[in-house]
Design a protein around this nucleic acid. Structure first.
Length: 697
RNA sequence: GGCGGCGUAGCUCAGUUGGUUAGAGCAGCGGAAUCAUAAUCCGCGUGUCGGGGGUUCGAUUCCCUCCGCCGCUACCA
């Protein structure tokens, strides 16, 4: 009995490009959808750009164009990136669409009618120049507790104090640099607490949520009265105006999930279907949302609450996944691991990432790690060495001929593989791709062993055994194809190439249980190239440079392009320091005190300084940390300092740096200096009183 | 501070509804093979299942506690 399944992935925000962290979700979801379709179910996959909110409004102002122009460009970029990674949506809409607006109106009417909406006055900082209320992150000022300057509006990054933007001393709007005013405005709230009985039941029963998620809600939200949800913003705001409250707009998180319905409506119009067949309360459709754990709250409390109140179909399951780390760390712009989808596609094939993610993804919300060395090894070993190798080993012997007319005796191998089909399908269904790929690779191992045992390369030498050769190759190619059927949700490209090789498309999961006979075998072409570490390194390097360029561009303050309004005098103006140095070398990513502590900086005295024979830039220094502890250091300061001027002076050195073998000898540290290099090098010195061995804190 | 999660072989992770010798892949070592994109096949793991305590005939699996790591949260979530 075919199921009717509506699948969604979270709507990417129109303020940024798709990166490999986003792709965890889109790949996970796309695989699930392709799997369902392959199984013969009726399944549609809808998504859309999330387009509303303050951030888009600000961006449009900064770029001096309309919000519509900003989101149109980004939508195009998103769709291009998704297509590049073989993410196949049935419809890709926008939350800023007539269909979505209509859906918002419909749900709003129901929520209002149910008596869930109330009005309350909210005090908030207002930017009189930009003419807009300011979300916390758009205000900066001096921390009221520790007086650190230029802190964000919600908490202090120096002392950790939490406060409201109104508590800041000397607050500034980052939009216009104006001094914000405290103003009040009426906001609309949804009284979620009224839905408590429903939410407790829905979230805890019926298996709609992973057990961790159900527990999380129970412990974090359902234990206390549910807070009212502020869902309106006063003008100006880029979004939909609330029909019965002119001058107020729905908060972006109100209309974003409704975008799932809006996108479905679009699809329905294009396919002459009724949206009620999917979202109506009596619909037989299952609804599956795939989201990241950061937006669990919206999808497991607000969203079902809204649907319930509006009398619509509820999610069958919300699949929550974890975040992506790269080499065990958060993706980092400065390290180049904050990889954009488009950057990836310039260097590496999409299938490699799809497959690697599959080997890491399980049904839980654990973060997954992209370890680049493992990535290269895994993809090469599994896909090239094992799977594709099967075709590569045998297709050549049979090119231009046909597969055996009846499937030969293979000792039960194909049947055994077919028998694993249900188990593999269950893993896919449960989003346990990691287990699915493991299972599939075991089939590839067995198939390779079959080839080793039967030795077609020996059989080929005897013309009398040509029928036997054809049988062995037919078996191997069928085992290969069976594996490809199982992998096809992950690797649609490989499925397509295999269809061309064996002249038979792969359209159904059941084909893994039916050996192919009698079809022509096309001349073999490589189905996949091995990855090289070089490619990954080049990609990371390009990404690092892109981000550095972007950051120095972004370092230009908003205030410069917005109307400059601010104090006539700023303390920094007294010295007239230009911003070039900072611009040329933007600030590195934030580090913790622990990171800083790892670097052991010490005061050292230069005992000796010498030219290095054959070196253009280096001086060789002998540093003393006191008490007879000396270090040999090569420093690139020859153009800026004469050796004789250095001897005797104090410098700051990195004393615990891993020694490095250089062309001219072993360098056991670095000395600290600022400047662009060349003749512009300025050594750091401690003030009078410091002695060699002092640690710099 | 609160809540949650994690800590299993060099690496990435399975697993155990408590029960005979705790698993896989990768890496490593030895051998075979040479059809195949330096790919394949066979053999090789004495790991305190983070430390300690408890419950039990028996715990890596349940409970408590400690250590370490991480995430979320700390009034517009």
């Amino acid at each position: 009995m075919p199921r009717q399944i509506l699948v969604t992935a979270a709507l990417p925000y129109a303020n940024g490009h798709i990166h490999i962290g986003h792709l965890v979700e889109y790949i996970q979801t796309d695989i699930w959808v392709r799997f369902q379709k392959l199984r013969g179910h009726r399944c549609i996959f809808v998504c859309a750009d999330d387009t509303h909110g303050t951030a888009i409004m600000i961006r449009a102002r900064r770029e001096g164009r309309s919000e519509e122009a900003v989101i149109a460009d980004m939508r195009e970029a998103h769709m291009r990136d998704f297509a590049g990674f073989q993410i196949q949506f049935d419809n890709y809409g926008s939350t800023n669409s007539p269909d979505n607006k209509e859906a918002c109106h419909q749900i709003w009417a129901a929520i209002t009618k149910a008596g869930l909406v109330k009005t309350r006055s909210v005090e908030q900082l207002f930017d009189p120049v930009a003419g807009t209320f300011l979300a916390d992150r758009f205000v900066r000022g001096t921390c009221p507790r520790c007086t650190a300057a230029d802190q964000p509006g919600d908490n202090c990054s120096v002392c950790g104090a939490a406060y409201t933007p109104a508590d800041l001393r000397d607050p500034r709007s980052i939009l216009s640099n104006a001094v914000p005013e405290l103003r009040s405005a009426d906001h609309l709230f949804i009284e979620l607490e009224q839905l408590r009985p429903f939410l407790e039941d829905w979230s805890q029963n019926g298996g709609h949520l992973q057990s961790e998620v159900a527990r999380y809600l129970k412990g974090n939200f359902l234990g206390d009265p549910l807070r009212d949800w502020d869902i309106s913003r006063p003008a100006p705001y880029f979004g939909f105006e609330i029909p019965d409250h002119p001058g107020n707009y729905w908060y972006v998180w109100f209309d974003a999930p409704i975008g799932y319905i809006g996108s479905t409506r679009e699809w329905c119009r294009q396919h002459s279907e009724h949206v009620e067949a999917w979202w109506g309360r009596d619909s037989a459709a299952e609804i599956h949302h795939f989201i990241g754990k950061d937006i669990t709250y919206f999808h497991t409390l607000f969203w079902p609450g809204m649907l319930h109140t509006a009398g619509l179909n509820l999610p069958s399951k919300v699949h929550v996944h974890g975040f992506l780390t790269v080499d065990g760390e958060k993706m980092s712009k400065s390290k180049g691991t904050f990889l954009m989808a488009s950057t990836w596609l310039r260097h590496l094939p999409p299938g490699a990432l799809r497959y690697y993610y599959s080997t890491k993804l399980g049904p839980g919300l654990d973060d997954i790690d992209l370890n680049v060395e493992e990535f290269v090894a895994r993809v090469n070993t599994d896909l090239v060495n094992k799977v594709v190798n099967l075709a590569s080993r045998c297709a050549g012997f049979l090119a231009g001929q046909t597969l055996a007319d009846t499937y030969p005796d293979d000792g039960g191998l194909f049947a055994a593989g077919a028998a694993r089909g249900d188990a593999i399908a269950a893993f896919y269904e449960d989003c346990n791709y990691n287990a699915a790929t493991r299972e599939i690779m075991a089939l590839a191992d067995r198939a390779n062993k079959y080839v080793d045992d039967l030795q077609p390369w020996v059989i080929r030498k005897d013309p009398a055994r040509s029928a036997e050769l054809r049988d062995v190759c037919s078996v191997t190619l069928n085992l290969f194809r069976q594996i490809v059927v199982y992998l096809s949700p992950v690797l649609p490209g490989l499925a397509q190439q295999t269809a061309e090789l064996l002249n038979q498309p792969i359209t159904s999961w059941d084909e893994a249980a039916r050996p192919l006979t009698g079809t022509l075998v096309s001349p073999f072409q490589h189905l996949m190239k091995r990855l090289e570490m070089k490619q990954v390194q080049a990609m990371v390097e390009e990404s690092r440079q892109e981000n550095a360029a972007e950051q120095s561009a972004a370092a230009t303050p908003v205030a410069q392009s917005a109307t400059p309004v601010g104090p006539a005098f700023h303390p920094a103006d007294r010295w007239q320091d230009a911003g070039d140095a900072l611009k040329n070398e933007p600030l590195a990513a934030e580090c913790t005190i622990d990171d800083f502590t790892k670097v052991d900086l010490r005061v050292a005295r230069v005992l000796e300084a010498n030219h290095v024979e054959g070196a253009n830039k280096l001086l060789q220094l002998t540093l003393s940390l006191g008490g007879g502890e000396v270090r040999n250091v090569f420093a690139g300061i020859k153009a800026a300092y004469k050796p004789e001027d250095l001897v005797g002076r104090l410098v700051i050195c990195v004393a615990n740096l891993k020694p490095r073998q250089m062309k001219f000898g072993l360098s056991q540290g670095m000395i600290c200096a600022s400047g662009a290099g060349g003749t512009e090098v300025f050594l750091l010195s401690p003030d009078t009183g410091a002695v060699p061995g002092h640690r710099v804190h």
